[in-house]
Amino acid sequence: MTDEKIKVNVFRYDPAVDQEPYYQTYNVPWEPGMSAMTALDYIYNHLDGTLAYYDHAGCDLGICSQCTGKINGKSGLFCQTAVKEEITLEPRKKERVLKDLITQRAESSK
């Protein structure tokens, strides 16, 4: 870990509480080879326990694809997108947000 910090702007929205979505900025220590998921984990573990992103069953290794979202406006997996400077993280579909970066599933595949 270096002393360097980067700004991570995260889309926040809890429809039960918030009138409208907003962006929250966190300062996260940068380390070589970190991903957007590394940054989210750092925020959750050290800065803000209320942040919601899919990880209760995530793989963090690019296999399950549950962490799909938008990184600086571009679709990708949070866990396999390298982070080198300030970034903005958003859900895959803002109109289907359940909370923050979590979107509702299409009708459950029962």
Binding site: D14, A16, V17, G49, T50, L51, A52, H56, L98, D100
Partner: peptide, 14 residues
Amino acid sequence: STTNDSRTYNKEWM
């Protein structure tokens, strides 16, 4: 304890 009492995808609760 969790930071807030939201039941929707509350990672701290899990």
